[in-house]
Nucleic acid binder design. Structure first.
Length: 838
DNA sequence: AGCACGCCGACT
DNA sequence: GTCGGCGTGCTC
């Protein structure tokens, strides 16, 4: 029969639609699913969908493409569900993800994993419950002990997941038992969605609408409450704060229950009023972030700042990226703020990247005072719920300015006008594990370009790559070399460790000069920062008799001694063990510590300056969410005289009372076996020195070294970055180091030494054959030959800088790795590709 | 990556 | 015999 209503159906109804879905799995492919007629009109790029992947797993995927091309070799599974009414990811982001996957040689799924807060990635877990027909007294089959235990536990709980069973039963046996019980019809197994994001709510009350009409009703209500003083009081408190008659909207908003209880109303009398129908109780969704008022509306730029801003504008007219080199204390913040304000006024969004640690400091507070609620903060220690809220905030336009860590490049911006990367030289912008191994500065520049926005890189000590681009005109370059308010640069002194040692003046790792300076500072009641870039008490223990050194069982490194916990720890895999009482090789009890970490420095200082209050800031003391904050607040409040720390203390700290900075062992930074050692030393020492002295006070910096003759010290002291750069670059050019070439590092990992080595050699040969301008080095055993029981080999590639060569080579590289992995000998070998490694 | 299937050793 | 090890193949 003819369909009389055919013309009333949506035009798409008859189409066979398919969608290519990005799934959070490390498989270099998109997956094509079919789009059912019910969602055909709603689906689009960037929507989240639920799909079945494999036999039972259900995953959240992102739609990358919608098309009508049916897959030829397999039957597409249907999309189970469309999760949103609007796309959570925009087309620009998909493009950005795709650039990142290809530039950093990883898969879209890995990028998606890094990009989406896990609160937006729903997945399922297998849950188990008793079969409704199952009868304990009459099971119908013989049961063994473990089955009985499992069924009994299940009888007590409504449902359980597989992990709970794993805890219940020793080993990995639960899986088998669940399977057999399922076969016997005793239990049911099903997949259920783990909902991760839950919005925060607030309990509120308002006056029931029947009383809001006329005064008289309220009068009679008070009559009725006569004698019930507490209830009367609640009602009065409420009416005091909400003018029910003048402004009925106010009553609709109601009052948080907490506000009333804070004012002395008892929860029970409020509840009684709710039960009587006098008050309505209701819940509202609230933000996890406190509202911050704008308190700083005006700030003025000094003449050098204004000039720098002008320069930046001028460069932006023809260049997308500008490098702003401003020495510590030169007042980059105000320049940023002014630029941000301009861009926000034009209606575009702004992203400002900061290294993790700098996010806890006054810069963020300052920005918050200037920009108030328009600004969102994205910190790596945020909970997942908080992350989802920032994401939604950007999506829905609540925030148009985000200040955040490297992963904030993934937030769903749709109209960026400006990206600022502060402390752009920071190596923590590079993610190493897991993939995508991206550099947030470089990714931000690309993101900015995709938005046709401008990028400003700010630092006192530019990364060579950035300075190089500024020198050759790719970036605009602006320099700001006057300290704000003309504060003077700190005075540097070198302290010769070997000289003091010879004269027996070195006490507990401190030279005489350093000790005297610390004492003077303490006497003036000012604060000291001591920098030692190694955590723990001592890098290792050693037997006095035979030289035995405790090693990690899983890695090719010695164990670090942590005195505070009385244990030995591996900094590579986290392995821990108790400190041995005697040498495991010869039995001698004479075991001594070698080398110096922050814990030991802290101890030495307390011996040398018993009256000083000392604190330590390193990975071990700042693990908790507010760990940094607590230590910094304490230091800022003047409760600490000496703060010892690793590179964490090199940034963000801005305290007026710090007048001395001590570097315990500059050689450790300087003689690191890496071509960037010099660059890093210059940056780190300059950074930490910048903490000394502010405003009217001239700070002092003491650098302890065994090689005071090193040229780099002269350059650091005079602040001559350009000269340092020039000399260092000559060397980089000669030996083909970045920025003259592009580096790609490949780490080959396998549990068997030989297999790892052979795979690495084969790969090297395959890579050498690729027709591109490059040098392939290695494979060489990694500096740490074994980590977590896997043997590591490294291949380094120095690649021509041109974009075409890079793209071609990376494509080939991925192909060759796939080729090698097809060989079943190398199936379990992992190949980590790290583009632009640090 | 996970997960299922299948083929082999060491215990009742 | 069977329980449980992990090598191998696959995911739209």
């Amino acid at each position: 029969m003819e369909d009389l209503f055919a013309d009333q159906y949506p035009a798409t109804a008859s189409k066979n639609l398919f969608a290519d879905i990005i799934l959070p799995v490390p498989i270099p492919r998109w997956f094509t699913y079919s789009v059912g007629p019910d969602i055909q009109d709603h689906i689009g790029i960037g929507y989240r969908v639920m799909v079945q992947f494999g036999k039972k797993k259900i995953l959240t995927g992102i739609v990358a493409k919608v098309h009508q091309k049916a897959p030829e070799v397999y039957q597409a599974k249907p999309i189970l569900d469309l999760l949103d009414d609007f796309p959570v990811v925009n087309a620009l982001q998909i493009k950005f993800w795709s650039w990142m996957a290809s530039y950093y040689c990883c898969h879209m799924g890995e990028v998606m994993n890094a990009a989406l807060p896990s609160g937006l990635k729903l997945s399922t877990e297998s849950r188990v419950q008793l079969h409704p027909d199952f009868d304990f007294d009459n099971p119908g089959f013989p049961m063994d002990e473990r089955e009985l235990l499992l069924l009994e536990t299940l009888g007590k709980n409504e449902e359980m997941n597989v992990e709970q069973f794993d805890q219940l039963l020793p080993g990995k046996t639960s899986h088998k038992i669940i399977k057999s019980l399922l076969g016997k019809g005793a239990i049911l197994v099903y997949e259920s969605v783990k909902e991760k994001y839950s919005p925060k709510t607030e309990q509120r009350v308002r006056l029931a609408s029947k009383y809001t009409g006329e005064d008289s009703l309220l009068q009679s209500l008070f009559e009725a409450l006569k004698g019930k003083e507490k209830q009367e009081a609640v009602l009065l408190k409420y009416l005091q704060q909400v003018d029910v008659f003048r402004d009925s909207g106010k009553n609709t908003e109601g009052l948080p229950k907490k506000v009333l209880t804070d004012q002395g109303c008892s929860a029970s009398s409020i509840d009684t009023l709710i039960k009587k129908g006098v008050l309505d109780a209701f819940k509202v969704l609230i933000s996890r972030f406190d509202s911050v008022p704008m308190t700083e509306r005006e700030f003025t730029l000094s003449p050098p700042q204004a000039a720098a801003l002008e320069d930046i504008h001028r460069h932006f007219e023809e260049k997308n990226t500008v490098l702003l080199q401003g020495i510590t204390g030169s007042g980059k913040t105000e320049i940023y703020a002014q630029l941000i304000r301009e861009v926000l006024q034009s209606g575009s969004q702004v992203l400002m990247l900061l290294p993790e640690i700098a996010l806890t400091t006054h810069l963020v507070n300052r920005m918050q005072q200037i920009f108030g609620d328009k600004m969102g903060v994205f910190h790596s220690k945020y909970s997942d719920n908080e992350r989802v809220e920032v994401w939604q905030g950007v999506l829905k336009g609540r925030y148009n300015f985000i200040i955040g860590v490297r992963s904030s490049v993934f937030l769903p911006f749709d109209s960026l006008g400006l990206v600022i990367v502060d402390e752009e030289h920071e190596s923590s912008y590079k993610q190493y594990d897991p993939a995508p191994r991206f550099h947030a500065r470089d990714a931000a520049i690309m993101l900015s370009w995709m938005h046709q926005a401008k990028t400003l890189l700010g630092t006192a000590t530019p990364a060579f790559e950035s300075y190089f681009n500024a020198q050759n005109g790719k970036y605009g370059f602006v320099k700001l070399d006057q300290r704000y308010g003309n504060a003077e640069l700190p005075h540097f002194r070198l302290a010769d460790i070997l000289q003091d040692k010879k004269k027996n003046l070195l006490k507990l790792d401190f030279t005489r000069l350093m000790r005297e300076k610390i004492q003077e500072t303490l006497n003036r009641q000012e604060q000291v920062l001591i920098f030692q870039n190694r955590r723990g008490y001592a890098p290792y223990l050693s037997c006095d008799e035979c030289g035995w050194i405790p090693q990690c069982e899983h890695c090719d490194v010695s164990l670090t001694y942590h005195q505070y916990q009385e244990e030995l720890r591996c900094h590579y895999c986290g392995f821990k063990e108790k400190v041995p009482v005697s040498c495991q090789a010869c039995g001698s009890q004479k075991i001594t510590t070698i080398g110096t970490g922050t814990e030991r420095i802290e101890e030495s200082l307390s011996l040398l300056f018993p009256e000083a209050r000392i604190a330590r800031m390193d990975l071990d003391t700042t693990r908790s969410k507010y760990g940094y904050q607590r230590i910094l607040d304490n230091f800022g409040a003047g409760n600490v005289d000496i703060l010892v720390g690793t590179q964490m203390i090199t940034k963000g700290l801005d305290f007026d009372k710090v007048s001395l900075v001590g570097i315990v062992d500059a050689d450790r930074i300087l003689f690191y076996p890496d071509f960037r050692a010099g660059e890093r030393a210059f940056q780190q020492i300059t950074q930490v020195a910048g903490r000394a002295g502010r405003r009217d006070k001239i700070g002092e910096v003491i650098i302890q070294t065994r090689r005071p003759d090193q040229l780099i010290f002269k350059q650091i002291i005079s602040g001559d970055y350009a000269d340092f750069y020039r000399l260092e670059m000559a060397e980089r050019k000669q030996f083909f180091y970045p920025p003259f070439v592009k580096n790609i590092k490949i780490v080959v990992k396998h549990k068997d030494f030989k297999t790892s080595e052979i795979a690495a050699k084969k790969l090297k040969n395959l890579l050498t054959d690729i027709p591109a301008k490059k040098i392939v080095l290695g494979p060489e055993k990694s500096i740490i030959g074994k980590i977590k029981n896997l043997y590591l080999f490294e291949i380094w590639i120095k690649l021509d800088r041109s974009g075409n060569v890079q793209q071609f080579f990376k494509q080939q590289l991925m192909g060759r790795i796939a080729e090698l992995q097809a060989d079943k000998r190398f199936r379990a070998v992992r190949f980590l590709v790290d583009v632009d490694p640090y």
